[in-house]
């Protein structure tokens, strides 16, 4: 097991290098640089911009630029933002990422708390009214795009009903302590539900089909034939098996939530990594764009590794030796 994890982490390195090349190539392939579109002031000599480009190394050959970027990234120096003058990318990212992680966790909790019990109920009572409603909700949840659901949620729950704030993370900065916590949760409800919507639908469908599948298996019949009661059959024998693919999926969810947050945060003007990312794209702030893209890539790689490790923990048949 340890060997397997070490091997997987070693495989990380070439994948990371590939990822960095792709990220860099994409950034370079995009038209324009930080000075494009800024040449509005006719009094500034275009030559000045060119000098600036030269100073920033934007005129160097692309492989040289890549190596300069990659080595500084490897040293943990993500560079300086070109838009927020004088701010390094680390501090920009680190002040936003906390919000995104909280939002992601909140969405994940909502997803699991809603999806798993409903999925189990649907499997225990297939074709019941609640199962049909859940199925309908599931398909809607998968079919409705995040941003659209977010806009409707804002219109209904923030504007019409006024139950939840439409944007931001906190009402004002003077709130502290437990009420700060509550206030932040209150702000996270709408974006959290929006972000978790597709996941909730997916997990619910998965849970339903897994539980149904397991309930029909031979070993459940054995458990019943042993005289185990319904509770034991469901919560011990069935769930322990049905949860295996769910736990595996959760590893992937790790990366999916972070990248899904990009659109949701934008809709709710939630100051997380997503809004920073979109703003950086609009501002052609390449160091930030590249760092966030790389970060999301790493998050997905880690998520996959976690999925594999979880898988071997919950399923004794899987041993990576």
């Amino acid at each position: 097991m340890h060997k397997y994890i070490i091997r997987r982490i070693l495989v990380f390195i070439p994948m990371l290098i590939m990822l960095s090349i792709i990220v860099f190539a994409l950034a370079k392939a995009a038209p324009g640089d930080p000075f494009t579109g800024k040449i509005l002031d006719p009094t500034v000599d275009p030559e000045v911009f060119n000098e600036q480009r030269e100073a920033l190394g934007l005129n160097d050959p692309i492989p040289v630029q890549y190596f300069r970027w990659a080595t500084s990234m490897a040293k943990g120096d993500f560079g300086e933002s070109m838009y927020y003058k004088g701010r390094d990318v680390q501090s920009l990212i680190s002040e936003r990422i906390v919000n995104t992680v909280y939002l992601g966790l909140f969405a994940l909790v909502i997803t699991l708390v809603v999806a798993i019990p409903i999925g189990i109920y649907s499997a225990k009572n297939p074709y019941s009214p609640l199962d049909y409603s859940a199925t309908t909700f599931g398909f809607l949840g998968l079919a409705i795009p995040n941003f659209f659901f977010g806009l409707i949620a804002i219109y209904v729950f923030a504007i019409k009903l006024g139950w939840f704030p439409a944007q931001g993370t906190i009402s004002n900065i003077h709130i502290t302590g437990f009420s700060e916590f509550l206030n932040r949760i209150h702000h996270m409800v709408l974006p959290g539900i929006t972000l978790g919507l597709a996941g909730t639908a997916t997990y619910m469908r998965y849970m339903r089909s897994e539980v149904l599948d397991v309930l029909g298996s031979d070993y459940i019949r054995t458990a019943k034939a042993k005289g185990m009661n319904d509770r034991n059959v469901l919560y011990k024998h069935t769930l322990r098996n049905a949860i295996i693919p769910i736990i595996t999926l959760m590893g992937f969810e790790f990366g999916a939530l972070l990248s899904g947050a990009i659109i949701t945060e934008q809709v709710f003007s939630y100051p997380g990594l997503g809004t920073l990312f979109i703003n950086s794209i609009t501002n052609r702030d390449y160091p930030v764009i590249m760092s966030i893209t790389l970060l999301l890539g790493v998050a997905i790689l880690i998520g996959n590794l976690l999925a594999d490790i979880f898988y071997s923990i919950v399923d004794p048949r899987i041993r990576y030796d």
């Binding site: 054995t222 042993k226 005289g227 098996n241």
Partner: peptide, 20 residues
């Protein structure tokens, strides 16, 4: 079940719970 009447099934490969 299991106490007064016990039962053995056809498929031993699938009759035991794989995760316990």
């Amino acid at each position: 079940r299991g106490n007064d009447i016990a039962m053995i099934f056809q498929e031993p490969m699938t009759a035991l719970n794989p995760v316990f």
